[in-house]
């Protein structure tokens, strides 16, 4: 019996494709913010599907803090060699200020390396729409985001005064200097992302899979050796079978003990998971509302 019924994953995919096509055909100069993580991998795959047989009709932009994991750089460079148009942006002011989380504290460091750099990158490319892989499920202020998230001339978000967004009639008209962040994966959860990666065979950075890695135990966090900034800490590391649930800058991203070595095993692990996805991200826990404050200033 033909029931003309989409499964939840097909429905999410169809919605994301619709959003990507809307953004591509209504903005002058869109860009995809590529962060090398699993959500970016899914976005990239959706873009291939959305526009085929056309190539992806906008560039990919990686705002690099210089603190990403080596394996992330390798993964990104491989995609570049495969022909993806990935532009890498290093903020000149960030390089000059030699920002680092242990000297400035995470809030200030993120402010310079991520938020300011992102705003500078968007400005330098005159991008009017930046597509990102953020999901409402990730964090409570993201739960409030529209699919089209408006930013003023300064790239700032005003959560108390968001544009109404009705049906799928996205209003993409902008005044000079305004821009939007578009979130095609708004309605996906972490489990949906992995289930889709499994279903479609999408390549992701190996850091997501469990391996023996040198880490420093700090409470329940496992800090990777790569992210340790002080020599004496490096001496205290031990080998632990672990993986990353989310990827950020190595000094501020913890691993979790895990033996999930395949996508299938990650999905099984998620069925049992008791902690939220971004619990390993130091920057989310600076103070109450820290993500909202970063977002208002222009962060993703």
């Amino acid at each position: 019996m033909q029931d003309y019924q989409l499964s939840y994953l097909q429905e999410l995919e169809a919605e994301s494709l619709f959003i990507l096509r809307e953004v591509a055909s209504t903005f002058k100069n869109p860009v995809l913010l590529y962060s090398v993580g699993k959500d970016s991998s899914v976005l990239l795959h959706l873009c291939k599907k959305a526009f085929y047989p056309d190539p992806i009709p906008f560039p990919l932009l990686h705002v690099d803090t210089g603190y990403k994991f080596q394996e992330m750089y390798e993964f990104r460079d491989r995609l570049q060699r495969e022909g993806f148009n990935i532009q890498v942006f290093h903020s000149p002011s960030a390089l000059n200020s030699k920002a680092s989380p242990d000297q400035l504290g995470t809030e200030k460091c993120c402010g310079i390396l991520k938020t300011q750099a992102l705003l500078a990158a968007l400005k330098s490319g005159e991008y009017d729409a930046a597509i990102g892989g953020a999901r409402r499920d990730e964090e409570k202020s993201r739960a409030k985001e529209r699919v089209y998230s408006f930013r003023d001339v300064y790239g700032q978000w005003d959560p108390k005064n968001q544009k109404p967004e009705l049906w799928q009639h996205y209003n993409g008209h902008l005044l000079k200097g305004e821009s939007i962040r578009a979130f095609p994966l708004s309605n996906w959860t972490e489990l949906d992302v992995w289930t889709y990666i499994e279903q479609e065979g999408i390549p992701v950075v190996p850091l997501y899979f469990a391996q023996k890695r040198k880490v420093l135990r700090k409470g329940s966090l496992l800090i990777p050796e790569e992210g340790l900034l002080q020599e004496e800490q490096k001496a205290q590391t031990e080998e632990v079978l672990c993986r990353y649930r989310t990827l950020g800058c190595s000094p501020c991203t913890g691993a979790i003990a895990s033996n999930a070595q395949t996508v299938k095993e990650i999905i099984d692990e998620l069925f049992l998971e008791q902690k939220s996805e971004r619990s390993t991200r130091v920057i989310d826990h600076d103070r109450q509302g820290s993500m909202e404050i970063k977002k208002r200033e222009g962060y993703f």
């Binding site: 964090e139 409570k140 202020s141 739960a143 409030k144 959560p159 108390k160 109450q288 509302g289 909202e292 404050i293």
Partner: peptide
């Protein structure tokens, strides 16, 4: 659990 914005809280 649902009121996510600082102003809301």
């Amino acid at each position: 659990l649902t009121d996510g914005l600082l102003a809301e809280r």
